[in-house]
Amino acid sequence: MWKVIAADLPLGLAVPDGVEGRANFEAVAQGDPGAPLGREPQIAELLRFVKHRRITGTLWLTADVHHTSARHYEPSRAAFKDFEPFWEFVSGPLNAGAFPAGALDGTFGPNRVFVKAPAASNVSPAQGYQFFGEVGIDGDSGELTVRLREWDGTVLFTQVLRPGLAGQ
């Protein structure tokens, strides 16, 4: 019923890396909101496949940008439009420096629904900004609930997804 895609880095967040002025990116997004570039064509092909095969109940769990966030992807906001709407939830890592949430790349139409991140880079774990996510599926209804949590378990954000309507 649910198809959870786990990836090491988010889809729509531009994560620059390297020497300033060079177009190096750690993540999928290239910082260009147009047609898919770099690693984006592979994601576009996967999203197209999911749509055309009528695969429902997909969501993405990603990490490694040192903050927590929930994003909704929608083709009407995107440069690449051949996909069904979906959610992406980001958390982690624990016990590492925290970083601000960077710019979103519009190739796949992300909308930041929730974010908790520091304003400065490499904030010490002693100052907070340590997050994890929790996913649960109700055995009766099939609803999938995602909770983004603070290090102490405090719930920061909750999203309930219904079977067949995961992208809504």
Rank of each mutant, 00 (worst) to 15 (best):
M1S: 13
V4Y: 09
V4H: 04
A7C: 06
A7P: 02
L9D: 01
P10Y: 07
G12P: 03
A14C: 11
V15L: 06
G18T: 04
G21H: 07
A23D: 14
E26S: 05
E26I: 00
V28C: 03
V28A: 02
A29F: 07
A29T: 01
Q30F: 02
G31V: 00
D32Q: 03
G34D: 05
G38M: 05
G38H: 05
G38A: 09
R39E: 09
E40V: 02
I43C: 06
E45W: 08
L47D: 12
L47V: 00
R48F: 10
F49D: 14
F49E: 14
R53A: 08
T56K: 06
T56Y: 10
T58L: 05
T58K: 06
L59H: 08
L61I: 04
L61K: 09
L61T: 00
T62K: 01
T62F: 07
A63E: 09
D64S: 03
T68L: 10
A70V: 02
A70K: 03
R71V: 04
E74Q: 13
R77V: 00
A78M: 05
A79C: 04
K81Q: 14
F83N: 04
E84C: 01
V90S: 08
V90L: 11
S91G: 09
N95S: 13
N95K: 14
G97Q: 15
A98I: 04
P100T: 02
G102Y: 12
G102T: 07
D105G: 02
D105E: 13
G106R: 04
G106K: 04
P110K: 03
P110Q: 10
N111W: 13
R112C: 13
V113M: 14
V113P: 05
V113N: 06
F114W: 12
V115S: 13
A117T: 02
P118Y: 10
Q127K: 12
Q127N: 15
G128P: 02
Y129P: 01
G136T: 15
D140C: 01
L144N: 07
L148V: 00
E150Q: 12
W151Y: 15
D152T: 02
D152I: 02
F157L: 10
T158P: 08
T158D: 12
Q159T: 04
R162Q: 09
G164I: 02
A166H: 09
G167F: 11
Q168P: 00
